[in-house]
């Protein structure tokens, strides 16, 4: 599903070149649940951004779902993000002015799904995360756990094969964190490929495999 071959990412800060990723090669198979761990500055975020097509590698090849995404334009990448990848962020990243319903609807607006289909899908997702009664509330009126569940529902809106979770429990209390992890595990069991960044060992135990990053390289 996800194939990195000799990916390098170099950031230029002033006159200095910073190697965020150095010759990273990895493969994540369809249906795997992988967590990526490592200290700050080890390149966790960079690897997530590249997997999520938010960033492009400086060198190397990235094949996502049999498609080489290295040379694609911004709009082509946007279409991939929209259809193949669902993002779950540490700080939820919900639109503050929009209701829970509208937040979940947004990815479907970007690919032009019909109103009736959208309504069906949103209702289904609300029921899956158990927040149907909260559909007309804004993010500021929801608890952290509820917000993350809305965010998870939004990530699933277009039924993407891959879920990218960046510290999904980082801003949550332990109870809410467990609920989120259970939802993610459930999705994995349904066949989604899940890639999660965390530095919490106990959270990482939910995954099948852990990739350790250190100074932009994979520690095996």
């Amino acid at each position: 599903m996800i194939q990195f071959s000799k990916i390098k990412k170099i950031y230029l800060t002033g006159s200095q070149a910073l190697k965020a990723l150095d010759d990273v090669s990895l493969e994540i198979k369809k249906g795997e649940f992988v967590s990526i761990m490592g200290p700050s500055g080890s390149g966790k975020s960079t690897i997530m951004n590249i997997i999520g097509c938010l960033d492009t590698p400086s060198e190397g090849e990235y094949v996502l779902d049999k498609e080489n995404v290295s040379g694609l334009t911004f709009d082509q990448l946007a279409a991939i993000r929209n259809g193949k990848i669902g993002f779950v962020f540490q700080n939820f990243n919900l639109l503050p002015y929009a209701t829970a319903w509208e937040n979940i609807e947004l990815p479907m607006l970007f690919n032009g799904k019909r109103a009736k289909k959208r309504k069906e899908r949103i209702t289904e997702l609300f029921e899956a995360v158990g927040l149907y009664d909260w559909r007309d509330h804004k993010p500021s009126e929801l608890s952290g756990g509820q917000q993350q569940r809305v965010a998870l529902a939004r990530a699933l809106a277009n039924d993407p094969p891959i879920i990218l979770a960046d510290e999904p429990t980082g801003n949550l209390d332990s109870q809410s964190g467990i609920e989120i992890m259970e939802l993610l595990s459930g999705l994995w069991k349904e066949g989604h490929t899940i890639v999660m960044v965390t530095h919490d060992e106990s959270i990482a135990t939910y995954s099948e495999r852990t990739i350790q990053l250190f100074d932009g390289k994979i520690n095996i």
Partner: peptide
């Protein structure tokens, strides 16, 4: 940024 992550195109 959120909209872009969710697949908004430039236009």
């Amino acid at each position: 940024g959120i909209k872009m992550a969710l697949g908004a195109k430039r236009r």
